[in-house]
């Protein structure tokens, strides 16, 4: 026998650490992580582009991995550490990736940029000296309709150089 289709579901208590700060909330199980970040926490730097797991504008880091927050329920991130674009800059200023994107024109309209930055930050943590191919492969799930990608690749190289020298 199958269960009946629920019209209303009780909220579930979750605790998620976002950019180093712990948040406890009660959420509907169907709430996607991107909505949790934008609507519950008002962290609107994470963008919703295609909403179908294609464009990568919603990319965040979940326990270190770059993942698409439109294809993850907030309840699945219960207990996890999430990093969003808001967590990149420090009191000392912009993150080297953010500076490099600015200096090398790695963005035009900027819509894809938060996702690009989070994918690039995961890449540089893993491969401090990436090749063009490493960068292309890692941002292949992030769609940019302005730049033609060349300046994004330059920006990631520039940030990698600065981070290695730091």
């Amino acid at each position: 026998m199958s269960e009946t289709k629920p019209e209303f579901v009780e909220a579930v208590d979750i605790e998620i650490t976002v950019n180093g700060k712990s948040y406890q909330r009660s959420v509907e199980p169907r709430m996607l992580l991107v909505e949790f970040l934008r609507e519950e926490l008002r962290l609107t730097g994470t963008h919703i582009g295609c909403d179908t797991s294609y464009c990568g504008a919603c990319t965040i880091r979940l326990d270190g991995d770059a993942v698409k927050s439109c294809t993850l329920f907030a309840v699945q991130a219960d207990g996890a550490k999430v990093a969003t674009v808001e967590g990149l800059a420090t009191e000392a200023g912009l993150h080297p990736l953010q500076k490099a994107f600015s200096e090398h024109h790695g963005l035009q309209c900027g819509y894809c940029t938060p996702g690009m930055l989070m994918s690039a930050s995961a890449l540089l943590d893993e491969i401090p000296n990436p090749s063009d191919k490493d960068i292309k492969k890692r941002i292949a799930g992030n769609v940019c309709r302005c730049t033609g990608y060349q300046n994004i690749i330059k920006s990631v190289h520039a940030a990698a150089n600065e981070l290695r020298e730091a």
Binding site: E3, K5, V12, E28, P29, R30, V75
Partner: peptide
């Protein structure tokens, strides 16, 4: 946003 229909969530 596209929302799934409501579902009950279990984590055994």
């Amino acid at each position: 946003m596209m929302y799934p229909a409501p579902f009950r969530y279990h984590r055994p």
